[in-house]
Design a binder for these strands. Structure first.
Lengths: 228, 228
DNA sequence: ACTACCATACTTGTATGGTAGTATGGAACT
DNA sequence: AGTTCCATACTACCATACAAGTATGGTAGT
């Protein structure tokens, strides 16, 4: 997978950024974890400069909270932001899938089908991580087919919050079969140009995403922002 | 290093970032302008480090293009991204204003009215810059009243592209009266809980935004990405 | 026992020197 | 004249040293 915008892929700064982001979103670095530039510079065997650069970028995305002269920590999950991310995705993805029903390139359509096959395979292997990535990829392809990749990349920003709660949820209660089924239905709807069906499935799909956020807050209280 | 003027409410890095961003979005730094860390560090009387930090952040927002070992320049306006930004705003703002028609706090409603008064005043003075800021503020208040400020801040990212083309357009053909009139209509629709009216006005409002993008491309060819 | 103080060991913020890659202009060669 | 090559002057990138703010634990004084 290639990064469209932004600087070189091979630089130390980008490597640190990419790896840190992956670890944060995947909850390997749980919300609230305290980091420090020096600590990470040792861990990644680079100087503080590229680490600091990564911190700046991650802070701008809301994944890190930098407190000057005090420390840096992985931001807690803000339930309000999670709901907003869901809201945002609902509006944009419903609009996009309706576009897709009007016109969708053959190339991306086969990409969707191929993706569904891979999902089925991952489902059989109970590979949750792979499923999550394929899920993301499925939606990305929809945006790609509608030439709205810029929109997708912007969504990713708030998604960082939504994704963390989704991963948390999927860890407690995997329900990949249902998600796969919805993806399959969306694919069929796009293929058959059935706008209303695509719209309703997508809406349900994205409502499901945070159905029981309050359950998660009870189960992992330390991961969430309490007062707002 | 001494801080000469404009008392820094924050760190040097933040100041440089804020000022650079303002200059880029307002087209004081036209698209295509080449910058360099050293050059800006001299201009802002700080070291290269905070400048570099700003560059990283602005590059992440797509406002700067950093070419390793080659240079840094203000990104050209990408017509496709402008259209995407408009598309995105249309979906989200229509959804938000419909929410607003269902429930909107009194506080933000009066803020909107106050904003309209200020728009009228700026209109009288032909103060384009003030009008632009009040326009932004008007829409921000709508999001605020629906508790969707996180969404608004994410929109700002792609808006950086949309705004530059809007400013360009408004420089060639001011049409503030029309925009003011639409704002007024939106306010009335929210006040009267008229969802369909709010929706249609907002849609027209955001379609207007880039009505004649091709004209701008002809008039300022150097500011736009040609091939994609 | 309790409080005030302060050395110390952190933290992020800033400045600066060095490194490697790139564009450019002029000299040497064909 | 046209081409090749290379010194030079850039660039962003990175490492490192220093500055300044903050939390903490021990100690002296009460």
């Amino acid at each position: 997978m290639k990064e469209l915008l932004h600087a070189p892929a091979g630089s130390a700064g980008n490597n640190v950024y990419a790896q840190l982001k992956q670890q944060i979103v995947s909850l390997e670095l749980p919300p609230g974890t305290t980091l420090s530039e020096k600590e990470m510079s040792i861990a990644f065997q680079v100087s503080r400069t590229p680490v600091r650069e990564s911190f700046v970028r991650l802070a701008q995305e809301g994944l890190l909270l930098v407190l000057p002269q005090r420390g840096t920590k992985v931001s807690l999950i803000d339930p309000d932001l999670v709901e907003e991310a869901r809201f945002m995705r609902e509006q944009l993805e419903r609009a996009v899938i309706k576009l897709a029903c009007q016109s969708f390139p053959e190339e991306q359509l086969t990409a969707l089908e191929r993706n569904l096959e891979l999902q089925q395979e991952s489902l059989r292997l109970h590979d949750g991580r792979s499923m999550f990535e394929l899920d993301e990829e499925f939606h990305r392809i929809l945006f790609e087919g509608c030439r709205k990749l810029g929109t997708w990349s912007v969504i990713q920003q708030m998604n960082a919050h939504l994704n963390r709660s989704r991963i948390l949820w999927l860890k407690t209660d995997p329900h990949w079969e249902h998600l796969y089924d919805q993806h399959r239905q969306m694919f069929e709807a796009v293929r058959l140009r059935d706008e209303s069906r695509a719209d309703s499935v997508m809406r349900e799909h994205l409502t499901l995403s945070i159905a029981n956020l309050s359950v998660l807050k009870e189960k992992f209280p330390d991961f969430f922002v309490t007062v707002q």
